[in-house]
């Protein structure tokens, strides 16, 4: 049995040890915004926050998260923290098929929060662990860069 906070709500569940965080969120809690892509830590589609820091949801054991605070794209979106970033994603067509978008937004939010002066090269570096198989990287980097500039 684990008890944790997900998007501000307290949740208690029995979890199988073989359950990773993304399956726990998607299958047990019905939060399907975080995507299970490669499921071995390469693609970044499953990026979520645990205790305020981004992690690969597929490389975290749900059972290990007793007492943790988890934020998914649903929580981040509802909080309004990245409303301007999301608007810039729409304006620049930075979401194409959309599969990578939740992970991209979670990772980009990390840049907005901690690297307010990031250059384009630093944005690319920070997003390098998130795959977009539509290869829409330029528009994604544009959207993050525009958001950073507008916030300055």
């Amino acid at each position: 049995m684990i008890t944790l906070t997900v998007n501000g709500e307290r949740v208690s569940r029995h979890v199988d040890p073989r359950r990773h965080l993304i399956d726990f969120l998607r299958l047990d809690l019905g939060l399907t915004g975080s995507h299970a892509g490669c499921e071995h830590g390469v693609c970044g589609a499953c990026t979520v926050r645990v205790d305020g820091e981004i992690v690969r949801g597929c490389l975290v054991l749900a059972a290990s998260l007793d007492g943790a605070e988890v934020t998914t794209i649903e929580g981040l979106s509802d909080s309004g923290e990245v409303a301007d970033l999301q608007a810039n994603f729409v304006a620049r067509n930075a979401a194409q098929c959309g599969f990578c978008t939740p992970g991209m937004i979670m990772t980009a939010a990390d840049i907005l929060a901690h690297q307010k002066d990031a250059t384009r090269a630093e944005i690319r570096e920070h997003l390098a662990g998130n795959y977009c198989r539509c290869t829409g990287y330029q528009a994604i980097v544009d959207a993050v860069e525009a958001t950073l500039e507008a916030r300055r």
Binding site: R56, V60, H126
Partner: peptide
């Protein structure tokens, strides 16, 4: 550290 994987992995 910057050479090791990506930020989300370096956090764990």
């Amino acid at each position: 550290v910057p050479h090791i994987a990506h930020p989300a992995i370096r956090n764990r």
